[in-house]
């Protein structure tokens, strides 16, 4: 192991779906690291493979429709072991003992991601009792404690309430309480605030930051919103059509974006006081079913497209230390083996 601070590293991860219309390479050779205690953002438009990446880490890709077909997901929990998650059976005991315990996840839609017929407490207790082998009483105490920590008022009373008695923001707080109830080392947040009002979004982001401090948990935050990334993440991976096109620390992404796609994303954010018109990225995300191989997939939408872009796939260039970009514009920089 090169780095003892490395919590999780994806190495050339490939997750494909076998649809009736053909092969969909939803995640196609993704490589990135997450260090202990770090927040990493994954950003991109819908359908670029962000969520599939997170479901792959959880081994929640539904077979036989999709499967991890290549690469590694190395997970190095605190006990010093190193596990390649892709080698584990998705329904097996070891994977289940990681899921919800060492790695947990919160989802996009707080309105639908809680089971409507069980109380909030019951749903938190379920994970606690499963992984911590605690009694019902201990689990309930833990549930109340977690609800208190995520800022739910009157937790003793609300622990016995049902999801429909909670507002959207409260439900997302409850989801966070549930995800953190077993003290995980790694939390995946898949568009955690997309479905919420802006004011609630700010509260939830604030809560997640506080919680990261308190629990020392590493967070991978998936979003299409660069504003959320700026708030939350130290490093960013920009994804496009199942591949990472740019990796950098958050500051560099904002002030020194290299990839035309990242630049396009930044130019399409409305900001107050802005004088120029918003420039959206022209076109839309291509259909993953009909992608040609060995080209730059962004070329058809790229303002800087060159002849080579539609002939050969660009390699990953190192622009700066910790800043890589997959684009022919930087030909001549040092190539990074992916």
């Amino acid at each position: 192991m090169a780095n003892k601070d490395l919590l999780l590293s994806l190495e050339d991860l490939k997750t494909h779906f076998f649809s009736e219309n053909g092969l969909v390479k939803a995640v196609d050779g993704v490589t990135f690291d997450i260090e202990r205690g770090e927040s990493v953002g994954v950003v991109g438009e819908s359908g670029c493979g962000k969520s599939v990446t997170s479901l792959s880490i959880m081994q929640l890709i539904r077979r036989p429709r999709g499967d991890i077909v290549g690469g590694k997901i190395l997970f190095n929990p605190e006990d010093g072991s190193s596990i390649d998650i892709t080698k584990l059976s998705p329904g097996g005991r070891q994977m289940r003992s990681i899921r919800g315990n060492q790695i947990s996840m919160i989802f996009q839609e707080p309105m639908t991601s809680l089971n409507p017929v069980y109380t909030i407490g019951n749903q938190i207790m379920e994970a606690v009792m499963l992984h911590q082998r605690s009694t019902k009483k201990q689990a309930k105490e833990r549930a109340v404690e977690m609800l208190t920590k995520v800022g739910i008022p009157a937790p003793l009373q609300r622990v016995d309430e049902y999801p429909h008695q909670f507002s959207g923001g409260m439900r997302q707080r409850a989801m966070i309480a549930m995800a953190l109830s077993c003290d995980p080392e790694f939390l995946i947040a898949d568009e955690p605030t997309t479905a919420l009002d802006v004011t609630i979004e700010a509260q939830i982001l604030r809560l997640m930051k506080d919680i990261q401090q308190d629990f020392g948990v590493s967070i991978m935050i998936i979003t299409h919103d660069l504003g959320v990334i700026a708030e939350m993440a130290q490093r960013v991976n920009v994804m496009y059509t199942g591949k990472i096109v740019e990796q950098a620390v958050t500051d560099d992404i904002y002030h020194n974006a290299k990839h035309p796609y990242t630049q396009g994303l930044l130019q399409s954010i409305p900001t107050i006081g802005r004088k120029q018109r918003l420039t959206p990225i022209r076109g839309s995300v291509p259909n993953l079913l009909t992608l040609p191989s060995n080209v730059c997939y962004f070329a058809p939408r790229c303002p800087h497209a060159m002849e080579i872009c539609s002939k050969q796939e660009p390699p990953l260039y190192e622009i700066d230390e910790g800043h890589t970009c997959k684009c022919w514009l930087y030909e001549g920089s040092k190539e990074v083996s992916a």
């Binding site: 959880m58 929640l60 329904g91 899921r99 639908t112 089971n115």
Partner: peptide, 15 residues
């Protein structure tokens, strides 16, 4: 196909 089923899976419950 609903989200809460995925949540339940993500907790580490048996299928």
């Amino acid at each position: 196909s609903k989200d809460y089923v995925q949540t339940a899976r993500a907790k580490g419950l048996k299928e």
